[in-house]
Design a protein around this nucleic acid. Structure first.
Lengths: 240, 240
DNA sequence: CGCATTTGTGACCAAATGGTCATTTTCTGT
DNA sequence: ACAGAAAATGACCATTTGGTCACAAATGCG
């Protein structure tokens, strides 16, 4: 069978320029549309985000292209390689999920720390609890490109450590500048963060149901956390 | 180039039975070892667990085989397909990470609930915080085979709900049998669980450093949680 | 309108990949 | 020690997959 396959292919190759008629007889043709480069690029990125979120980065360019009604070759006109497309997807997804307000929000002492944390996590959940984001985040983590690490650094710097410092202030404990934050203190806040993010994992990674009223859960989480932290924090300072 | 390739292959195919001498001249040969079927099967499964944990289930059987010093064909003597191997890996990994003691431990009223939760999560962390387990768990979750769901069901039934019921008893609130557990109550405990598991995710999925003294963090987590839960729980009962 | 430029296509390639099988090598029981 | 059973190999296959390229179809614009 091998040989005739080969022959068939050669034959096909030789018979060049097959008459490709766009309009079938008596049928209004579904014209092929050429998009401007910039638009097509956007369209590809958008679809790629959805596609890779579902299938992981091993998903095939051909299938991705089919979903958009184009050929995979068209993708390669706009992106030099699959790697480059993936890199672009990272860029888009990561950049769109951080609000510059969040850092200041944590430090804004016109509200109680509990209120600030509640506002932040309500906002955070609203923005981050999305299929595409969560799955691409985790997929990229598993491929270990160091990208997730960079994102977590931001969270630590902008949320975790400031919040821990604020709790010190709240409880009238020594300032973080004189007594540096201990690991167990910051872990308290990583705990709150993990608790919230674990909801997203349950929903989008394990695809297990979570309560419909997410806001209530977030509020409860912050409240419970603050009650607990107020009790635990002084102990940590003594023992650290 | 295509054609001569083809020819070369055919030629090779024709020249059958190449003299394969095991011992090079004057060299002690590294003998090939035949293992008994059962042993080889175990060896394959063990290596596959490590391999798939690293590379995900798209990892190639050839590479897996190479790591064991055998050919990928040998794998197919012991497993009918890659799918079957993966299925077996699931079995092994999931089964080995649940202790029958855990359910009873939560219900054992000879210790305080806080002590029970501490014991459980210390034990849980010791058993579950392992590269292979965590990654295969998450990988399988992303492929959505419903396996992770089954595992979470066990956690809910054996840990989350019993623990919530115990907290009711602890706080002298109405029994769970007369007042069924509310979603927000069980979410409290999912919160604790998520908080702990998020440590594993940070370590093995994001590959970000976590504190070396995991036990201290677990203790703090349970303590903070209990302090918070004692304050929050009564509110939930009223509002639910 | 007409054509140069841009966008998209389909055939093709090479390497990878899951899987099969005839043959060879090793092992075990007698 | 040796024959038959069991284990392992390597050549092979079909299909998949990232990527290229010559050519065809749309489109902007003078």
């Amino acid at each position: 069978m091998r040989f005739s396959d080969e022959m068939a292919r050669k034959a096909q190759k030789t018979a060049k320029r097959p008459v490709r008629r766009r309009t079938e007889i008596g049928k209004s043709a579904p014209k092929r549309r050429n998009m401007r480069a910039a638009d097509r690029e956007r369209a590809i990125v958008d679809e790629a985000i959805r596609f890779f979120a579902e299938h992981g980065f091993e998903g095939q360019t051909r299938e991705l292209a089919k979903r958009m009604g184009i050929t995979h070759s068209a993708i390669y006109r706009h992106f030099p390689s699959k790697e480059a497309l993936i890199e672009r997807v990272y860029q888009e997804v990561y950049l769109s999920r951080w609000s510059p307000d969040w850092g200041p929000m944590i430090r804004d002492r016109s509200l109680s720390l509990e209120a600030r944390l509640t506002r932040f996590y309500l906002d955070y959940a609203a923005r981050v609890f999305e299929y595409n984001w969560v799955r691409i985040f985790v997929f990229s983590g598993m491929k270990s490109f160091g990208i997730t690490g960079r994102y977590l650094d931001i969270i630590r710097r902008e949320i975790i450590e400031p919040a821990a410092a604020e709790l010190r202030h709240d409880l009238k404990l020594p300032d973080a500048k004189t007594h540096p934050l201990g690991e167990r203190e910051t872990e308290l806040f990583w705990g709150l963060h993990g608790r919230i993010f674990y909801l997203a994992i349950r929903k989008f990674i394990y695809e297990t149901p979570i309560p419909p009223d997410l806001d209530a859960i977030v509020r409860d989480a912050v409240q419970t956390f603050m009650d607990g932290a107020r009790a635990t924090m002084p102990r940590l300072l003594v023992r650290d």
